[in-house]
Simulated assay, not measured.
Amino acid sequence: MRGVEYARAREVLRAHYGEIKRRYRKVVGAGVGSVVDQEDLAGAGDLIYGILVSLEDSSGLPATPQSIEGVPLKFRVTGRYRAQPDPRC
């Protein structure tokens, strides 16, 4: 998978976050991160970024690679996010 520059991925995420939540079931969050596999990093330069989409469970995983405005989406199942108590309390 080939990525884009960080600023481009961030711009597209800001513009399309609502669309991502509507289009893909079970989205719990999204952010910008590396979408390039470790073995493909050599020679990728700054073109390693995309949108990382966290899902509650695997029922929302798309069957084919996805992108928005040429920015790749990489999906991962993380489960629901939960706030953890402050251990200092």
Score class of each variant (00 low, 15 high):
2 R>K: 15
3 G>C: 04
4 V>Q: 02
4 V>D: 02
5 E>N: 06
6 Y>T: 00
6 Y>Q: 13
7 A>W: 12
8 R>E: 10
8 R>L: 14
8 R>S: 03
9 A>V: 08
9 A>D: 10
9 A>N: 11
10 R>T: 03
10 R>I: 00
11 E>D: 12
12 V>C: 05
12 V>P: 04
13 L>M: 09
13 L>P: 06
13 L>Y: 08
14 R>N: 15
14 R>W: 12
15 A>I: 01
15 A>Q: 13
16 H>D: 03
16 H>C: 09
16 H>L: 02
17 Y>D: 14
18 G>D: 10
18 G>L: 05
18 G>F: 01
19 E>Q: 09
19 E>G: 01
19 E>Y: 11
20 I>F: 07
20 I>T: 03
21 K>P: 00
22 R>T: 01
23 R>I: 02
23 R>C: 01
24 Y>L: 09
24 Y>T: 03
25 R>T: 03
25 R>M: 06
26 K>V: 01
26 K>Y: 11
26 K>Q: 08
27 V>K: 02
27 V>W: 03
28 V>G: 03
28 V>P: 07
29 G>C: 07
29 G>K: 06
29 G>H: 03
30 A>R: 08
31 G>H: 06
33 G>F: 04
34 S>H: 02
35 V>I: 14
36 V>Y: 04
37 D>V: 00
38 Q>S: 06
38 Q>Y: 10
38 Q>G: 00
39 E>N: 10
41 L>R: 15
41 L>H: 13
41 L>P: 05
42 A>K: 15
42 A>E: 15
42 A>Q: 14
42 A>V: 13
46 D>T: 05
46 D>P: 12
47 L>W: 04
47 L>N: 12
48 I>F: 03
49 Y>Q: 11
50 G>E: 04
50 G>I: 06
51 I>P: 05
52 L>C: 02
52 L>F: 00
52 L>R: 07
52 L>V: 08
53 V>I: 08
53 V>H: 02
54 S>E: 13
54 S>K: 14
55 L>A: 02
55 L>F: 07
56 E>Y: 09
56 E>K: 15
57 D>T: 05
57 D>L: 05
58 S>K: 12
58 S>P: 03
58 S>R: 14
59 S>R: 13
60 G>M: 09
60 G>L: 07
61 L>G: 00
61 L>C: 02
61 L>F: 01
62 P>S: 11
62 P>H: 14
62 P>L: 13
62 P>M: 12
63 A>K: 15
64 T>E: 15
64 T>W: 13
65 P>E: 13
65 P>H: 08
65 P>S: 09
65 P>A: 12
66 Q>M: 09
67 S>E: 13
67 S>R: 03
67 S>K: 01
67 S>L: 00
67 S>V: 00
68 I>F: 09
68 I>Y: 10
68 I>L: 14
68 I>W: 09
70 G>W: 14
76 R>L: 11
76 R>N: 11
76 R>M: 14
76 R>E: 14
77 V>D: 08
77 V>H: 08
77 V>G: 08
78 T>D: 11
78 T>C: 06
78 T>L: 10
79 G>S: 02
81 Y>D: 01
82 R>M: 06
82 R>D: 02
82 R>T: 04
83 A>H: 14
83 A>Q: 15
85 P>D: 11
85 P>T: 07
85 P>G: 05
85 P>V: 07
86 D>S: 12
86 D>P: 12
88 R>Q: 05
88 R>W: 04
88 R>N: 03
89 C>I: 10
89 C>Y: 10
